[in-house]
Write a protein that binds this DNA or RNA. Structure first.
Lengths: 194, 194
DNA sequence: GACACCTACATACGTGGCGTATGTAATCGA
DNA sequence: TCGATTACATACGCCACGTATGTAGGTGTC
């Protein structure tokens, strides 16, 4: 009990973020009520407004947490591939797959941008785009890809991925569409190669 | 006064859609109040709920109107180019430019998908994607592009375009970013060419 | 180690806005 | 011409966000 105070605060924040993440991910930002997750967290609205200011503040905290997790996952994927190009392709595929997870899709690609504006702007470039950008930088240094602005390419891929994910997720036959989407995506990526 | 009734109805609907379009485009879906645009249209909430059911219904009507306009603009652009490939590239550029217009960006790319789900799904494929898809079909028939599923490509381009637009619109120096974005986008499109 | 202070959270309330239920006048079919 | 339907107005309930105020427990200072 070196820091019982700060410890409790961290726990409270974590509980609220977790509850918010559940609610936002399952029923969406607009439908989620403040009382929903304070109840789930065993707290009251006082704690929520004290720590996060308002509903948007909680959403932002949730997004930062998810972004950090996505970044780590992407880095792991690209690190465990035999070649850099393969790592990059795997990373893109992993990005699409993550965008298929309902929680990520809803919070990061639907409600997030709608409520807070363009996510990729409202702080420093978020980790998941930075990760793609970094991979492209290395490929460029190795001379494996054509001359293209890497941040732009990362954002192109980001945009394409998230839309592919939405398309797949909302399709009647997700598996069929998924094959088409991934195949087309790979073809597009090949166009970047020398 | 052949059909004074239906005429008046159409006028009422048009007034409400126009008012909704203004409000949604300027302050966004969540911040726009029903009373805002009924006031602007010189009507009451009764008319609104009668014709559109709820707030989402009005948004949907607004989106359909904008989509039709976008489709027409895109078709004009591609039709007035010297070659098909050039027409296609122009069409993509026009798409990005349209996505830069605040009203289109907000309604079609931010609030629309957030409120109604994936726009490209909740009816038949919307016109603006169909237009891109159609252009790609012709290019493919002419043997100008590589073998790729055209609908997938259209959606990739759609996703990439809208994200480029968001990036540009929210940047500190839109002009600089715009140049980078369009250049990168063209490079990516070249990858589709034979 | 006692005291004042501050911070983390709880409680209670006002308010705004969505949706609905009901009312009414004008138009359409017979 | 008369009943029925439709287009819209009016009035109300309710939910949920945010805020203002209260309180208890920890913290810095002497």
């Amino acid at each position: 009990m070196a820091r019982p105070r700060t410890e409790m605060i961290a726990k409270t924040r974590a509980k609220l973020i977790a509850a918010g993440r559940h609610a936002f991910g399952r029923i969406g930002y607009a439908e989620a009520s403040m009382d929903d997750f304070t109840g789930e967290a065993g707290l009251t609205r006082g704690a929520l407004y004290h720590h996060f200011g308002d509903k948007k503040g909680l959403l932002q905290a949730v997004i930062m947490e998810i972004d950090a997790e996505m970044t780590e996952r992407l880095n792991k994927v690209s690190a465990s591939a035999p070649t850099r190009w393969q790592g990059f392709v795997d990373e893109c595929a992993a990005y699409i797959e993550m965008a298929l997870e309902p929680e990520i899709q809803r919070i990061m690609f639907r409600d997030g941008p709608a409520v807070l504006g363009d996510i990729s702007q409202w702080q420093n470039t978020p980790g998941c785009i930075a990760a793609l950008s970094h991979s492209l930088d290395r490929l460029k240094a190795d001379g494996e890809i054509i001359d293209i602005d890497t941040e732009t390419a990362a954002r192109l891929i980001n945009g394409a991925s998230s839309h592919m994910a939405l398309w797949i997720a909302n399709a009647e036959k997700p598996e069929t569409v998924s094959k088409r989407a991934v195949a087309g995506f790979r073809t597009m990526l090949e166009g970047l190669r020398k």
